[in-house]
Each structure stands twice: as structure tokens, then as C-alpha cells.
């Protein structure tokens, strides 16, 4: 069965796309994250050098986006688990809005704590 635009013009499709793209972006970021943490093996000073490098505005923005993506993948994933494993209830229709709201709140909390 082919999907046409009508199947995609729905919040649930956008939720699927956000979940998939955030998962992809996080998977690409992971090796860099592990590499950065691994720099601690070379001592505190090396870690400090790396942390100073991340203070550039563009990287700060990227950090906020990563937190937003991580939170969106978390809340979107919780929504999927609820849809798949819990008996259907009316409140599940508003899960999408809750997922988006909670992800934005997490991103904002990080951005304001910076």
C-alpha cells in the first residue's frame, strides 16, 4: 500500500518523523559523546580543554538542540510504549501534546540553566 499526502497530513505522522529523525541524530552523536567522555582518561586538563571548546555559541545551540532531541525521543518513545502496551483509553489521544510539551520544557530548562 502506498502512502499519499493524506496519510502524512496527520500529527501522528509528524510524531513518527520526529521520533525517527531524533533517533538518527542521537545515534550519530553517540560516538562523539563517548569519545569526548573518553578524553577524561588523559586527565582533567584535557577534559577542560574540550569543555572550553564547547563554549562557542554554535556549539551551545547544538547542545540545546541535542537535549531537545533527547527529550523528544524520550517522550515520543513513552507515548509509543503507552499506545502499544496499555489498553486504549481516551486520554491517550492527548499524549502527543503532552510528549511535545514535556520535551520543550526539558529543552527550555537546559537552555535557561546554561
Amino acid at each position: 500500500m502506498k502512502n499519499d499526502y493524506r496519510a502524512r497530513n496527520h500529527p501522528a505522522w509528524w510524531a513518527f518523523l520526529v521520533h525517527r529523525l531524533s533517533g538518527l541524530a542521537l545515534s550519530i552523536f553517540l560516538p562523539f559523546h563517548f569519545w569526548a567522555l573518553g578524553q577524561a582518561l588523559q586527565g582533567e586538563a584535557r577534559l577542560d580543554t574540550l569543555l572550553r571548546w564547547t563554549e562557542q555559541p554554535l556549539l551551545k545551540f547544538a547542545e540545546i538542540m541535542l537535549i531537545l532531541l533527547l527529550a523528544a525521543h524520550l517522550t515520543g518513545g513513552l507515548r509509543l510504549l503507552a499506545l502499544e502496551f496499555l489498553p486504549w483509553r481516551g486520554w491517550q489521544k492527548s499524549l502527543l501534546a503532552w510528549a511535545a510539551g514535556a520535551a520543550l520544557a526539558a529543552g527550555l530548562a537546559f537552555a535557561l540553566a546554561l
Partner: peptide, 13 residues
């Protein structure tokens, strides 16, 4: 690879 490098990062920190 993810498991190995992840554990290495954890060990480092």
C-alpha cells in the same frame, strides 16, 4: 562498537 566505546567512556569518567 557502541557497547565497547560506551564502557570505555564510563571507565574514563
Amino acid at each position: 562498537a557502541l557497547f565497547t566505546f560506551g564502557l570505555r567512556a564510563g571507565w574514563a569518567v
